Simulated assay, not measured.
Amino acid sequence: MLLVQGLYQGHLLMGSPTGPVQLGNMADPVAYISLVGIIAMLSLMAVGARWAVLGGVLTSAVLAFAGGFWVLPDAPFFLPEGLDRTGLQLIFMNGWENVKVCDYADLSLVLTLFLILSGWGGLKALAPHLDDGQMGRSLLSLSGLSFIACLLGTMPLTAAPESAAGQAMGGRTGRMGYWTAAFLALLLFMEPTLQSMASFPSIFAPAFAGAGLVLLLRMKPVFSGGIADKVAAGLLFLILPLTQDVAAGLGAACIAYVSLTLLSGGHVSRFLRVLAVAFLLYFFYGFWSIL
């Protein structure tokens, strides 16, 4: 999904009247600058550079700046503000009493399933050595941080797949995480500059494509199981990039895995059975809403 998103954002893939997708037009500045950035990233990967993805992003950024597709704003630095408009707004938002209970329940179910599966998958990719007890404690800590983050007005936190990609390329954990947090905190004061850069989609296309490529190279064990494992993985690889719908991809994979495993006489945990039923209800509710 990340790889396809990067190619779409960089206009290297686009919709086609005769098929699902077609190659982009190289006369489009977004397309050729994205292509140069991705080629630079792949070249750095080939020589073993740990900063390959960052190098691709910087290459695209420099080319776009030289071409005048983004410019430094008059005030490149900005004092962060807005906590008074985001903090606790999830609880004390206007009109919450008019929201239907069923809408809250639907949103809560989907968000909970996504956070559990995404958090577990991200942590498993970042730290595959963790046992069940350590994984549970890590998820509990992540949930506590998400609760605090939501009170401050941000989206819930989860272990990003980009972090797993960085670790796969040789990035170190521990103190490197604190340095990364400090770097991102400093970027808060450069919001106008970053907003100007983000206005040209080529700049971050190598970041999406690079993270997706690195994760894709680690996916070989996913297809080494039985028919249920392979079909579930295949559905994820097919549905996520085409629909950009995480719930649809995870739900279809979960239902397929549980159904095929039970049909083949295998054992499925009670948790996965309940999860499959929940996704069936989710799909049924979605189809019924469309009809």
Score class of each variant (00 low, 15 high):
residue 247 A to E: 03
residue 88 L to Q: 00
residue 53 V to G: 08
residue 257 Y to K: 00
residue 178 Y to N: 12
residue 239 I to R: 07
residue 255 I to Q: 00
residue 151 L to A: 15
residue 230 K to P: 01
residue 230 K to R: 14
residue 146 S to E: 13
residue 217 L to G: 05
residue 221 P to N: 03
residue 114 F to A: 15
residue 88 L to D: 03
residue 80 P to T: 03
residue 202 S to A: 07
residue 156 P to H: 12
residue 111 L to W: 14
residue 255 I to H: 02
residue 256 A to C: 00
residue 236 L to W: 00
residue 261 T to N: 07
residue 230 K to S: 07
residue 8 Y to K: 14
residue 16 S to H: 08
residue 38 I to G: 03
residue 89 Q to A: 12
residue 121 G to I: 11
residue 237 F to P: 00
residue 245 D to L: 00
residue 272 L to R: 10
residue 277 V to L: 15
residue 185 A to R: 09
residue 172 R to V: 04
residue 52 A to I: 05
residue 105 A to G: 04
residue 102 C to L: 13
residue 50 R to C: 03
residue 93 M to A: 14
residue 287 F to Y: 08
residue 285 Y to F: 12
residue 140 L to R: 14
residue 68 G to Q: 05
residue 250 L to Q: 02
residue 213 L to E: 01
residue 202 S to Y: 08
residue 246 V to E: 11
residue 223 F to P: 08
residue 11 H to L: 08
residue 73 P to G: 05
residue 179 W to C: 04
residue 35 L to D: 02
residue 249 G to M: 07
residue 35 L to Q: 04
residue 218 R to I: 01
residue 190 M to E: 09
residue 179 W to F: 09
residue 75 A to S: 12
residue 152 L to S: 13
residue 178 Y to R: 15
residue 271 F to H: 12
residue 233 A to K: 00
residue 81 E to A: 08
residue 1 M to R: 04
residue 178 Y to M: 15
residue 283 F to M: 01
